[in-house]
């Protein structure tokens, strides 16, 4: 799996969970502040990540600041998937 693939599938996942295509454009906004994600949706994202990439990230493993934008999420997955 390459970084591009990870990026593509992550965007699909996020668009579905956030129910908003804006994630494709705004890669660095805080998704929680923007109201696109809330705590429960975040769980769905983590589960979706596990399903799509086989990467397990526990909800208490990572600080919110480290996973609150599209690019940061992609980064966390890449770091674990390609490690």
């Amino acid at each position: 799996m390459t970084e591009e693939e990870i990026e593509k599938r992550t965007l699909e996942l996020l668009a579905e969970v956030c129910d908003d295509e804006v994630v494709y454009e705004e890669r660095d906004i805080d998704l929680f502040e923007a109201g696109l994600l809330d705590s429960m949706a975040a769980i769905e994202v983590l589960v979706g990540i596990e399903e799509a990439f086989g990467v397990e990230i526990a909800p208490t493993e990572v600080e919110r600041e480290e996973m609150n934008s599209v690019n940061k999420i992609i980064h966390q997955i890449v770091v674990r998937a390609l490690a």
């Binding site: 579905e16 969970v17 705590s39 769980i43 769905e44 983590l46 596990e50 526990a58 909800p59």
Partner: peptide, 24 residues
């Protein structure tokens, strides 16, 4: 948050793995 992280999370994860539901 506790319930979210330890109950909701585990349920959603199990349900997703075993495909209990059609939609997210």
């Amino acid at each position: 948050f506790w319930l979210r992280d330890f109950v909701f999370m585990r349920f959603v994860r199990s349900a997703t793995r075993h495909k209990w539901f059609k939609s997210r």
